[in-house]
Design a protein around this nucleic acid. Structure first.
Lengths: 346, 346
DNA sequence: GCCCGCCATGCTATCGTTAGCACTCGCCAG
DNA sequence: CTGGCGAGTGCTAACGATAGCATGGCGGGC
């Protein structure tokens, strides 16, 4: 590897001069700067970041800690952040936790060792106490999931309102029994979405017993499949379901296609998020669209400002983006009381 | 930040002893090791990677250079690699090129400055000469796209055969005119897929004029939409189309749904890759499934071995994974000569 | 003509960790 | 009683870039 010293020896200069020439220091003559730059380019010199970093300067690397990059929610976030970071000369280290707090801890240890300038994290349900400690030592932002124990900046969506809107839409159409497939209540997002679901039920004067609830790993397509099978197999199957995660939605849609369930005549469905494919699924999936892109950009910009300027506004505020219902064809009022009424009539 | 020096001062030891205790060196007594470890844990010591790296050791960071993480092709790759790397104690820096060679160059410069141990790259169509120079100075693997100018290890899929299979399937069903929407021929993958398409045409004794070809940015869903509109609007619209990229497939499917084209009666379609949603699109999308996951794992393992052992087998070999046709409902023999024959008859 | 000041560059310490070599005990054998 | 040995620890240099201070040479003002 070529170092400033190599350049210095070749040009019969000192390392200081070379370093300053490359840094475009005022004290160096234009001629020398030119010679140095020429030599550097010729020799293929690339500054050693590690060495530069040791002189007190913080690294220009940011850690991105997310559950799973394959989830398009997170890949969208990663993309937006990556663009933002690159524009500011930062690099992004990708860490996947798979929603496992021990994996999360390992990654945070590694990131600390790398002296990352900042961290953007979608925390697991209950981060390890050491994780919390490590995070507190570094400028960081929480994304989507909010852990109050960290007391830090948070960018997320209004999970409560998202599921409230979705469920309210189903309630308005007169569904008597509404199912919900979502993430576990231990997850801040899971808890909020569940509350939103329940709130819409009671807002429609439906008892909470009118809700059939299936909770489980929110990143598991497979769990979505199983959950919807269980819901439909029950003695009092719902006539509509609301969904509480993108991956679960994918699983549910796949299974409904496989089971050949008629939507919306037999079952109304409101999805979560808006993926390619949702628009062409069955009659088109009515779903909650979320401004992930904007949220990620906001988050990236906030961290950049935090890192490049003095930490003046270190106060922990939260930024909440609202979701909006996208109406397509997968929801309709429940079929007229069918067999029961026929039976009555006959 | 806590350093070994801080620990040393607190325990009245030298930095060397502390360093060796933390490295579990034989020469240090168990008692001292214990005291050091205790203090380190208490004080929240995290080794500084940059400093360690300066002592000659190469960093344990690997750069992943891909066009766009939102493309599920690449997010799958990123996920597999991330898992592999983490298991070996490596970190992954994510760099998106957006298929722009200058962006690619900027990223490679940054990665060089970070003294990454290795690079995994999906190169742009024509990498900058400096990019080639930078890559040659670092252990690296090419993924999917193969640039012979680099003369390095490559992991990819059999693009030629993938499109040959897809197109041959359409030819066998007797389609007289077959369209193709794919990436540009400048891209190694684009060229191979196009060759595969043409080879299948001539293998079916169809003149190359029987193919309507639309090439364009392979990562652009929008281009897929436009391309299929152009194909269907032409005076001699094809009765079947083969697709040459995942993103283009997404665009084409969306547009076909929007235009309400009857598949497969009016048009047969063979997709590329297998995304969630492909199975439930229309009658189910017949498509070329690709073993991306296996390819990525193989690639990751190869690089790990290359980095952790002596570079004994530095010979550039290539690993090609075959694709396989997944038959669903989107392909069928063309409708009997319709309007033309009617016109003749009337 | 001499001294001061400034321009261009050099010297050196520094960052945190590690590795090679040096040192200091205490203990045992000669 | 002393020399040697080895276990345990310390000293110091090195990695590459950078910032503060030092230096050398030259020109202008008095």
């Amino acid at each position: 590897m070529i170092t400033t010293r190599d350049i210095a020896e070749r040009l019969q200069l000192s390392v200081s001069t070379v370093g300053r020439a490359l840094a475009d220091d005022d004290r160096i003559s234009e001629q020398t700067k030119f010679r140095v730059r020429q030599a550097a380019a010729e020799m293929g010199y690339v500054a050693n970041r590690a060495a530069r970093m040791m002189r007190g300067a913080s690294s220009d690397v940011v850690g991105l800690v997310i559950p799973d990059i394959r989830n398009s929610f997170y890949s969208t976030i990663a993309h937006e952040l990556s663009k933002n970071m690159e524009a500011q000369g930062f690099q992004l280290i990708l860490s996947e936790t798979d929603d496992d707090r021990m994996v999360e801890l390992r990654h945070l240890r590694e990131l600390s060792a790398s002296r990352v300038a900042g961290v953007i994290i979608v925390p697991t349900a209950r981060p390890h106490s050491e994780s919390v400690k490590l995070l507190k030592a570094v400028p960081h932002v929480q994304l989507l999931r909010k852990h109050s124990s960290l007391g830090s900046q948070w960018f997320g969506v209004n999970d409560f309102d998202a599921l409230r809107q979705a469920t309210a839409h189903l309630v308005e159409q007169g569904h008597p029994r509404i199912g919900y497939v979502g993430g576990p209540a231990e997850l801040p997002t899971g808890a909020e979405r569940l509350k939103g679901f329940r709130s819409a039920l009671s807002g429609g004067n439906l008892s909470s017993e009118a809700g059939c609830i299936e909770l489980g790993p929110p990143s598991s397509v497979e769990h979505g499949r199983q959950a919807v099978r269980r819901l439909l197999a029950g003695p009092s199957a719902p006539t509509a379901i609301a969904l509480g995660s993108v991956q679960l939605t994918l699983g549910v849609l796949e299974e409904l296609s496989r089971l050949d369930v008629k939507v919306p005549s037999e079952l109304s469905v409101v999805g979560f998020g808006d993926e390619p494919g949702f628009s062409w699924w069955g009659p088109g999936l009515t779903t909650i669209g979320l401004p992930i892109q904007e949220m990620a950009t906001g988050c990236g910009l906030w961290l950049m400002r935090r890192l490049t300027t003095k930490p003046d506004d270190d106060s922990a505020y939260a930024s909440v983006s609202p979701g909006s219902l996208i109406l397509r064809g997968s929801t309709a009022p429940p079929a007229q009381p069918r067999r029961p009424s026929r039976r009555k009539g006959s």
